[in-house]
């Protein structure tokens, strides 16, 4: 039990460090949210002024914007370590690598949550979708989606951060992996907004939970190998 508590303390310390760096003017999350909101605005232009079509496509567009923004977010969280040469120090900490992974994933999930939480109102306003009524299932979906994306993203950003052409490699590797997450999150959002007429919301949320658990375990098990070199 005490080992678990020690790991949790380490993870929280790492996540707190990332949050502090962000608060003290790194602006990574802020500019990412702005980028994702811009994507939503451009989707509006691409799909034309027909508001009915926009409202229909809104859940899919929203989650695509979250995925695009999320790619930048998880990349930033590792890039800022590499830029300052802090990645080596992170690797040299005499602590369990799984705790380091948990900390970075927690920071990533927090940033994703902020991104998702702020994009939902943007979609509600821009595309005229009534999201307020179903806030609870939507909040659960965003939390589960954020955790899953951060779980994969932390491992893959750690993998690509010191690579050539990392800007291309990270999306190339991550997008097919998160395809089931995107699918489940969009379906859950559609079901939640419509008031769950077919009773399928639970199944999609379960799929998200399953994805989160599997990817967290996989990430924790492999992150140590990525910090090694």
């Amino acid at each position: 039990m005490s080992a678990l508590r020690r790991h949790a303390t380490i993870a929280l310390a790492i996540a707190r460090k990332d949050a502090l760096a962000e608060l003290r003017g790194r602006q990574a999350v802020g500019s990412t949210i702005f980028f994702a909101a811009l994507v939503l605005l451009l989707f509006g232009f691409a799909l034309g002024p027909d508001s009915g079509r926009l409202a229909e496509a809104a859940p899919g567009l929203l989650w695509l914007a979250i995925v695009f923004g999320g790619l930048l977010t998880v990349a930033r969280l590792h890039q800022m370590e590499a830029d300052d040469g802090a990645l080596e120090q992170l690797a040299l900490y005499p602590v369990d690598r799984r705790a380091v992974y948990a900390g970075k994933a927690l920071a990533g999930a927090g940033a994703m949550l902020l991104l998702g939480g702020l994009l939902f109102p943007v979609v509600a306003i821009l595309y005229g979708v009534p999201l307020g009524a179903a806030w609870l299932p939507l909040a659960v979906t965003v939390v589960l989606g954020s955790v899953g994306f951060a779980a994969v993203g932390t491992a893959y950003a750690g993998l690509t951060v010191r690579m050539r052409a990392r800007e291309v490699m990270l999306p190339l590797l991550m997008l097919p992996i998160v395809a089931p997450l995107l699918l489940a999150a969009v379906k859950a959002t559609v079901a939640a907004v419509a008031g769950d007429p077919f009773g399928e919301l639970g199944a999609w949320l379960q799929l998200l939970v399953g994805f989160d658990i599997v990817m967290l375990i996989a990430g924790a098990a492999t992150y140590g190998f990525l910090l090694e070199d």
């Binding site: 993998l159 190998f225 990525l226």
Partner: peptide, 9 residues
């Protein structure tokens, strides 16, 4: 090592 992680995930 990195490819092993990618292949595993």
């Amino acid at each position: 090592a990195r490819a092993a992680v990618v292949g595993l995930i």
